[in-house]
Amino acid sequence: VFVDDHLLEKVLELNAKGEKRLIKTWSRRSTIVPEMVGHTIAVYNGKQHVPVYITENMVGHKLGEFAP
Rank of each mutant, 00 (worst) to 15 (best):
K20L: 09
E56G: 14
K10D: 06
R21V: 14
W26I: 07
P34A: 14
P51D: 06
V43K: 00
K24G: 02
Y53N: 14
R28W: 06
V1M: 09
T31P: 03
I23D: 01
Q48G: 13
F66L: 09
V59F: 13
V43W: 03
M36G: 00
V52Q: 05
I23S: 01
D5G: 15
I32P: 00
T31C: 12
V11R: 00
S27L: 05
V33S: 05
P51K: 10
I23K: 01
N15Y: 02
I23E: 01
V3S: 02
G64Y: 13
D5P: 15
P51N: 10
H49T: 02
E9D: 11
F66M: 09
F2T: 04
K10F: 07
P51L: 08
V59Q: 12
T31N: 13
G60Y: 15
L8D: 01
K10E: 15
K20G: 01
H39I: 03
V11A: 01
E65W: 08
K24H: 12
P34N: 12
K62Y: 07
L22E: 10
I23Y: 01
G46L: 09
I54Q: 00
W26G: 11
P34H: 13
Y53H: 08
T40C: 11
V37G: 05
D4Y: 03
D5E: 15
E65T: 10
E35R: 04
I41G: 01
F2L: 05
E19R: 05
V52E: 02
V3Q: 04
I23A: 01
H61I: 10
V52F: 07
E56Y: 14
D4R: 01
I54V: 08
T55L: 15
V33H: 06
D4A: 04
H6N: 08
F2N: 04
A16L: 12
V50A: 09
G18P: 01
I41M: 05
V59E: 09
K47I: 15
H39C: 02
V11H: 00
A16Q: 12
V11T: 02
T55C: 11
G38N: 09
G38L: 10
D4C: 07
V37L: 13
F2D: 06
M36F: 15
I32G: 00
N15V: 03
T25W: 02
S27W: 05
E19I: 13
Y53Q: 12
E19P: 02
D5R: 15
K24D: 04
